[in-house]
């Protein structure tokens, strides 16, 4: 599958419509990142509503501007991984614990079910899953302010 020879438009229902070389139009295609955490900008796939891969995109920048913006838009509206910039308060140091956090998407409150829900990524980054499955990211825990680090330290 090549990265040209296709059209991508958004229809009135807000769905992306993909038409490949075979001329068949697929409604409701979804862009998916292959390495959502380690290499978000490399390796994207467009999959149809049945989960079948229609197009593999090595790099977003390889695409023409139109489809690229559509895909960016769609990704932005699907991806939700608030980045925690400050931990304001935690209800208890024993889990389950409710945290009040400041994120790049505004203030939020999350329930941490257990210490196991904190996943260590490379370079001091952490991924925290709350009780409803929303993933919160801490890019660099050493870069947090002192109070937040203290809170966090108790759970690591």
């Amino acid at each position: 599958m090549t990265t040209s020879n296709f059209t991508l438009i958004r229809n009135a229902f807000g769905q992306l419509v993909f038409t490949g070389t075979d001329g068949e139009a697929h409604e409701g295609v979804v862009p998916v990142r292959a390495f959502a955490i380690t290499a978000p900008d490399e390796g994207l796939a467009l999959v149809n509503s049945h989960g079948k891969e229609l197009l593999w995109i090595e790099r977003l920048t390889d695409l023409a501007e139109g489809p690229r913006e559509l895909i960016r838009e769609e990704l932005a509206s699907r991806e939700f991984m608030p980045v925690i910039s400050r931990i304001r308060h935690v209800s208890s140091f024993a889990t389950p614990s409710t945290w009040d956090v400041e994120t790049d998407r505004g203030n939020a409150r999350l329930v941490l079910k257990g210490e196991d829900d904190i996943r260590r990524l490379a370079q001091n980054a952490l991924l925290i899953a709350d009780s409803h499955g929303v993933q919160y990211m801490i890019r660099d825990r050493r870069a947090l302010d002192k109070a937040s680090r203290k809170f966090l330290e108790r759970f690591l």
Partner: peptide, 10 residues
């Protein structure tokens, strides 16, 4: 709702 259109907490 706890999120707005731009997926910010609101």
């Amino acid at each position: 709702l706890d999120l707005d259109k731009a997926l910010r907490f609101a």
